[in-house]
């Protein structure tokens, strides 16, 4: 291992958009603001961040779909801006959602067409397609039109499509978005299986447990900036002296919830309204001091199910990206 397969250095990417109908005004949106990271051969590397963080832009830039505004990129030793011909046969990508397939074609015909677009010799195509359909468990519906498939089946077919050329690197952009838990688990199994076979994987996701379970390393990006990069274990270790106090409260005001964040030893307050109830999560180094403060601050409001736990990767993410209050 330790063979750098993707190297991203100070990459910036901005888009020009227009505002207004009659008096059009050009606006420049900076999607990536100078990101640097590298991915090692055989790794599953996760790019995590909120909507609009720049994850998809990063993936599209790495897969030759977009050119960066500035910065240097090397994928498998090739420059994705100028050496597209050399690079494209060795990579593939899967964008989340149900699109990116021909719904009026069968699963088999979709794979056959994309195999030709990736110049897979006809002699090996049939066996390869059958193998891929088996991998994603669609062999029984191979000749059925894709429009009759469920979301999970379409997503799995996309995985098969992304593998027609045996890519050395597979880019996955939110692959499990909208999938039910069973389909999402199946998808994770496939990703792990691919990685075991030697495919390097770069994936973006919103689901922290997915990143925690799959990724060797994770980069958190927010508003086009790289916030932190490490292994999931190290992220959790760094936050090991942090405790998460979670509780549900009834009948408290928003003002009181905000007052909780006034205490300096509380790093982060996360509140979620559910009807009359509010679920609150606090991040702190000193739970012993914070718990009495909670009762004092919420002043008579009912507090129930109070627990003190160690942080999950999601808690680390919220602390890194969410600011003081979210």
């Amino acid at each position: 291992m330790n063979n750098t397969i993707i190297d991203v250095s100070h990459v910036k990417r901005s888009y020009k958009t227009e505002e207004g109908i009659i008096k059009k005004k050009q606006k420049v949106v900076e999607a990536l603001k100078g990101i640097s990271f590298s991915v090692q051969e055989g790794e599953i590397f996760g790019l995590l961040g909120p909507n609009g963080a720049g994850k998809t832009t990063m993936i599209k830039t790495l897969t030759t779909m977009l050119t960066p505004t500035s910065g240097e990129i090397s994928v498998l030793g090739f420059n994705p801006v100028t050496e597209t011909k050399q690079l494209r046969p060795h990579i593939n990508f899967i964008l989340g959602g149900e699109r990116n397939l021909y719904w009026r074609l069968s699963a088999y015909d979709n794979l056959a067409y994309f195999s030709d677009l990736y110049r897979i010799p006809r002699a090996v195509q049939k066996a390869k397609i059958n193998e891929l359909l088996e991998l994603v468990n669609l062999q029984d519906v191979a000749h059925q039109r894709v429009e009759t498939f469920s979301k999970g089946m379409k997503q799995r077919l996309q995985i098969a499509r992304g593998l027609v050329n045996n890519p050395k690197i597979l880019f996955l952009d939110e692959p499990s978005i909208g999938l039910d838990p069973v389909s999402a688990r199946k998808l994770r199994e496939i990703i792990r299986e691919l990685n075991n076979r030697g495919t390097t994987i770069l994936l973006t996701t919103h689901y922290m447990y997915e990143a925690d379970e799959l990724c060797d390393r994770i980069a958190f990006i927010d508003k086009g900036n790289l916030v932190a990069i490490d292994t999931p274990q190290n992220f959790k270790l760094k936050a090991d002296n942090v405790s998460i106090i979670a509780f549900t409260t009834l009948g408290t005001s928003e003002k009181n919830i905000h007052r909780l964040s006034d205490l300096p030893i509380i790093h982060h307050v996360q509140a979620e309204n559910r009807g009359y109830l509010t679920n609150i999560k606090l991040h702190t180094h000193d739970p012993q001091t914070v718990v009495p403060f909670i009762y004092e601050t919420l002043n008579g409001a009912a507090i129930q199910d109070l627990t003190i736990t160690k942080p999950s990767l999601e808690d680390v993410y919220v602390e890194l990206i969410g600011g003081k209050v979210s």
Binding site: K85, N100, L101, L117, R119
Partner: peptide, 13 residues
């Protein structure tokens, strides 16, 4: 609309 334009655009052919 199908979402396939990007895929065919970056395929080796």
């Amino acid at each position: 609309y199908y979402g396939t334009l990007e895929i065919i655009f970056v395929s080796p052919v």
